[in-house]
Nucleic acid binder design. Structure first.
Lengths: 139, 139
DNA sequence: CTTCTGATTCGACGAATGTCTAACCAGTGA
DNA sequence: TCACTGGTTAGACATTCGTCGAATCAGAAG
């Protein structure tokens, strides 16, 4: 062990609307979230990567989509579990991962637990990847 | 072992512009790639997840950004390696992962190897996550 | 041909991940 | 209170992942 950097970023989880501040050499404000605008700093990357990693699993990606698409904007765990050939604990685990990433949130209502998507976080990731969103929006 | 699904999707890697068809209950056409429009199918999820997983690592996310931001739209491996406290083999490994995912491509030019980003793939991921991109683009 | 530099491949190893079963917690209703 | 259903936690296990050092490949320059 002589290499390794890691920079120990201990950002909590995500907090809804982070950036827009602390933006070195950019000025544009709206523009420079995108990946292709300014090189991502190590800390920023360390904060974002876990979000992409969370949706980097087929089951979690589908879970996210199922929740987002569900009428009322929220879905009960039992409905989600039925959509997969996986055991309840496994589904529960994946939901936990998504929740810890800040992508979804949940609430118990009587016997059932409901999950819903946090659209701001999803939106942020979209902007990061989309180079032209800024271009379209700018002029 | 009695569960497990997997569905054995063997889609090659990505192919540039897939969907745009097969769209239940929408009409908008452009709209419904997004996650939140229609529930992602198992095959679709199995195809997309590896892409998100590829950028679900801080090093790879930074690599992608560094390449995308680099003047000329391409970057030499040596420049990329210098940006990290990681050994060349490790950087090479991450570049390989990104390349296999279809996010970047490369070419040897004399002694050096240059990498560049495949913007279509990035764009696609952005659309998948972003509910509003369609709204902006469709106008 | 030999040597040098840039980059990748190979093999290894510890850490993290996805899945399961078993056990447990939280409400509901008799 | 007791039993039942929905969901999570705990622990185990095989697989995958990220990293490294050593070896190898690919051109360039003597």
């Amino acid at each position: 062990m002589s290499k390794q950097q890691l920079s120990v970023v201990d950002t909590p989880v995500i907090d809804p609307a982070p950036d827009a501040a602390a933006d070195p050499a950019s000025g544009a404000g709206v523009c420079c979230s995108p990946l292709a605008c300014a090189p991502l700093g190590a800390e920023e990357a360390a904060e974002l990567a876990p979000l992409f990693k969370a949706i980097g699993d087929p089951v979690r990606l589908r879970l996210l989509s199922l929740i987002a698409c569900h009428e009322g904007g929220e879905a009960c765990v039992c409905e989600l579990t039925d959509a997969f050939d996986l055991t309840p604990p496994t589904i529960s685990h994946h939901l936990k991962v998504l929740k810890q990433a800040g992508l979804i949130d949940s609430e118990r209502r009587g016997t059932w637990v409901y999950y819903w998507v946090n659209p701001q976080v999803l939106q942020r990731l979209s902007v990061i990847l989309g180079p032209r969103v800024a271009a379209v929006a700018s002029q």
